[in-house]
Design a protein around this nucleic acid. Structure first.
Length: 809
RNA sequence: GCCCAGGUGGCGAAACUGGCAGACGUACACGCUUCAGGUGCGUGCGACCGCAAGGUCAUGCGGGUUCAACUCCCGCCCUGGGCACCA
């Protein structure tokens, strides 16, 4: 039988659909629920090979769980709000909704062609009011608790387009629409107080089965540091400059302070600054740098001294100068740092460049030495008066105590800015009334529906295009009834994806975001699969939402995703990241047409370790296609006559060997799938096929069944076809994962490696469990070993049972 | 700059807990099969020396620990991901 993948795949996809094999029922007798989730996708237009790679591996795992006996739910959906739809609207005049929904239609078709076990009855589309109503509802709950608030924040601003820009749109300080210089402008924005959850987000990481690298990125992102706030009085003034430092021990080594250009004291001090013009120029200049530019180009440090301003070191009362530089960020700590060039790299460079004094206060040996670079290690105090010779970490607390500073915990991460001056997002449900101030939209009035508009360009005042819709903007105040205005900002799309996993358990509910019983049935998510690019933001935001809803009593768990795995990225054949602009995007449809979904799945699983990803090799799929062809061929020519049916037990060594290989493969494939090592699972299936082909006649019905069952997760269509072809009536997906026989897989004889002086010189077959004495005797008697050992006595013999012996001369 | 990964044959890769480096697959070469081939089957395939047996070298670079290092430690180089308004 030739391998007709097109016919086979269409046939079984239809069959699975008809039998509703993958529609997840809320509960099934005798089965535990298993919620398996793959990050939903952005409807950009076409599914690309990266989606396939991601979803194929995830589906292998989900199918395996199903065969392990779980009631698996594996939903999918679309993260449908976002900038590209709006850009398409501006450039091509297509309404974002139309663009998005039509992309969803195309991509749904493409996804269906994969044959994954998605439950299509639970699809979520975040741009529909029935979904984003609950965004707004959660926002209101946060507002009630004081976790949603408004604040003035610096944003990238294009003075010509009159709009706020994303960092991506402001690369190199130029607006990517019109090329004008981007400025930093203060804008009032909505934020969510994620920092209130900092410690819990940090602590609960310990409870999760997540990649260590992801946990560590989250830890670093949160950036908890324990330190102290120290006050430096300004000379001849009542004012003080407060700095945050984790290195209070280095206080006597402070030779200047540095303020961020946006530090509020600068305005107040302006009158006293002698070099006003250079200071103002510097501040003006820094407004044209994006935050990323400021962080990236720190090699060439810039700065200007605030002449006329001096501060007093609270510890040794020394008078020191104050500088301003953009390597200090306004948003972190207090926006001011104490500079200790002797013990901080950045301060060291800055001091060298501007010829500021460098005073060493910690040293390895109690002596001062000429420093070539900053000394960052611990040591004992020097140049610090009565503290000299104390270990620096003890001195730290003494200093904090003696100047009466308060200890403080600082976090690097900031509250989450969710305001977007864009059209294509969920409206923030707030109303501004002249009389009553900021009034939340009453819950009964939700959703605040995004109006259909015609002009998607910003309104020229920096507001979202929604401000142009009078019908949307003007509204009666829910409290006093007077005419008021709606908030025109929409929400960051990360809000949509911060709770979508909750909605899948009850996607059509109109009364609550999800029924509490269904939440109990399914949640939290057992396995979550998605890209490492989400290691920080999405995953942190989702954890924050879960913790908030837990606190509010809606959930009985504190973490949304118990296990997490990342897929790697597929790079284009030219070694570049795939993107439309580079023109190196691979169209999966053509490959599916030619080789079939199963070949695609097998190849994508085989090409690299799942978490690693790799370069797309257009010819690589041939290997997978050949493999499936050979499987197809093997089973078509299988002799299902009397001989095989009546055979029980094994009638030859060959037969026993084949069975051992089969059982080893069951073990290996199962373990590899659990570890997301799909590449080596496929490789062991290929070995099994090679070995079986050598012993064609020996595959009986029982062995053939097992063979097909362990291929199911990778090539489900072909496995189903062959399964029913060899006489099975029900779907192979209803079968359970075969068990391997522990005793059967142990080889009786072991190949022992013989090394002389650590170099491999010989090998010998020996029975399992042979003792050291027995082995030595056997090995030392071998001609080849004698050649190397000669007449000398071995100095030492290293013996690792069942593995190797190393004779050291 | 900061945080996180990774670097192994022509190519994709594998290697358990420190124990045969290169499984499996591709490409290539040769042979058989075929009217034909992006067919099927077989053999070979890290580099160097050698007719061979075998030997030496080899996992980004430089050092170290060890009987033994792709694996552990120290220093460096390169590539990729993230850095808060792309999702």
């Amino acid at each position: 039988m030739p391998y007709n993948h097109k016919k086979i795949e269409a046939k079984w996809q239809k069959y699975w659909k008809q039998k509703k094999l993958f529609t997840a029922k809320d509960s099934v007798n005798g089965k535990k629920n298993y919620y398996h989730l793959t990050m939903f996708l952005y409807p950009s237009g076409n599914a690309h090979i990266g989606h396939w790679y991601n979803f194929a591996g995830a589906d292998v795992f989900a199918r395996f769980k199903m065969m392990e006996g779980y009631n698996v739910m594996s939903p999918t959906g679309f993260d449908a709000f976002g900038l590209p739809a709006e850009n398409a609207a501006i450039q091509h005049g297509v309404p974002p909704e139309k663009w998005t929904l039509s992309n969803i239609k195309t991509m749904t078709k493409q996804l269906e062609s994969m044959g994954n076990i998605y439950d299509w009855s639970r699809v979520i589309i975040t741009c529909l009011p029935e979904y984003y109503k609950w965004n707004q509802w959660i926002f209101l709950q946060m507002y009630k608790k004081g976790l949603a608030y408004r604040k003035k924040v610096a944003a990238n601003w294009c003075p010509s387009c009159k709009t706020v820009l994303a960092n991506e749109q402001a690369e190199g300080g130029k607006c990517n629409r019109c090329g004008s210089s981007v400025e930093q402008k203060e804008v009032t924005q909505w934020l969510l107080k994620i920092t209130a959850y900092a410690d819990r987000l940090l602590e609960d990481l310990e409870t999760l089965d997540w990649p260590e690298r992801t946990k560590s990125m989250q830890k670093n992102w949160i950036g908890r540091s324990e330190g102290a706030e120290l006050e430096f009085p300004i000379e001849d003034s009542e004012l003080k400059i407060t700095v945050f430092t984790t290195r209070a021990d280095t206080l006597s080594g402070v030779t200047y302070l540095v303020l961020a250009p946006e530090h509020p004291l600068l305005k107040i001090l302006d009158a006293r600054i002698r070099n006003k013009n250079s200071v103002r120029d510097y501040i003006e200049g820094s407004k044209h740098k994006t935050e990323l530019d400021r962080m990236t180009n720190v090699k060439e440090k810039t700065g200007v001294e605030l002449q006329g301003i001096k501060v007093i070191n609270p510890f040794n009362k020394k008078i020191i100068p104050v500088w301003m530089s953009d390597y200090v960020l306004g948003g972190y700590g207090t926006g001011a740092v104490m500079a200790v060039p002797a013990h901080d790299d950045r301060d060291f460079e800055f001091a060298k460049k501007f010829e500021l004094p460098i005073i060493q206060v910690i040293s390895e040996n109690g002596k001062t030495n000429k420093l070539e670079t900053a000394y960052l290690e611990d040591g004992v105090m020097v140049n610090s008066g009565e503290l000299d010779n104390l270990p620096n970490n003890i001195a730290k607390d003494r200093i904090i105590e003696s100047i009466g500073a308060k200890k403080k915990v600082n976090y690097k991460f900031r509250d989450w800015l969710i305001s977007r001056q864009r059209y294509w997002g969920a409206p923030i449900p707030m109303i501004y009334c002249k009389e009553c101030g900021t009034v939340p939209v009453p819950e009964r009035d939700l959703p605040v529906v995004l109006p259909k508009i015609k002009d998607y360009l910003p309104d020229g005042l920096g507001r979202s295009p929604l401000a142009k819709s009078e019908k949307f903007l003007k509204v009666r105040c829910p409290e006093c009834g007077a005419m008021a205005e709606r908030e025109t900002d929409t929400m960051d799309t990360f809000v949509d994806s911060s709770w979508y996993y909750l909605r899948y358990v009850d996607p059509k509910n109109k009364k609550v975001f999800a029924d509490s019983n269904k939440i109990k049935d399914w949640l939290p998510v057992k396995m979550y699969v998605g890209g490492p690019e989400h290691a920080v933001m999405h995953l942190l935001y989702a954890r924050f939402f879960t913790k908030f809803l837990y606190d509010e009593g809606y959930l009985d768990f504190k973490e949304p995703f118990l296990s997490l795995r990342h897929q790697g990225m597929i790079i284009g054949p030219d070694g570049q990241k795939m993107s439309k602009s580079r023109g190196n995007v691979i169209d999966p449809d053509a490959l599916v047409e030619k080789f079939g979904a199963d070949s695609m799945r097998v190849y994508l699983c085989f090409m690299a370790e799942y978490s690693q990803g790799g370069t797309w090799d257009p010819t690589g799929i041939l290997g997978a296609y050949r493999f499936l062809n050979r499987v197809c061929d093997l089973f078509s020519k299988l002799d299902l006559g009397k001989k095989i049916k009546t055979e029980n037990g094994f009638n030859s060594k060959e037969h026993k060997d084949l069975n051992r290989i089969l059982h080893k493969t069951i073990k290996k494939v199962g373990e590899d799938i659990v570890d997301f090592k799909f590449n080596t699972a496929i490789s062991s299936l290929m070995i099994l096929l090679n070995e079986t082909e050598k012993r064609r006649g020996l595959l009986n019905k029982n062995m053939a069944d097992i063979f097909l069952k362990i291929i199911v997760p990778f090539a489900p269509h072909l496995a189903e076809e062959l399964w029913q072809k060899i006489g099975n009536k029900k779907s192979v997906h209803l079968e359970s994962w075969p068990e391997f026989n522990k005793h059967l897989i142990e080889d009786e004889e072991i190949e022992l490696l013989i090394q002389v002086n650590g170099k491999l010189r010989d090998k010998v077959m020996i029975h399992r469990g042979a003792s050291q004495g027995e082995t030595e005797k056997l090995v030392l008697a071998r001609e080849r070993v004698k050649e190397f050992v000669g007449t000398g006595k071995p100095k030492k013999i290293i013996f690792v049972q069942d593995r190797l012996i190393n004779i050291v001369l």
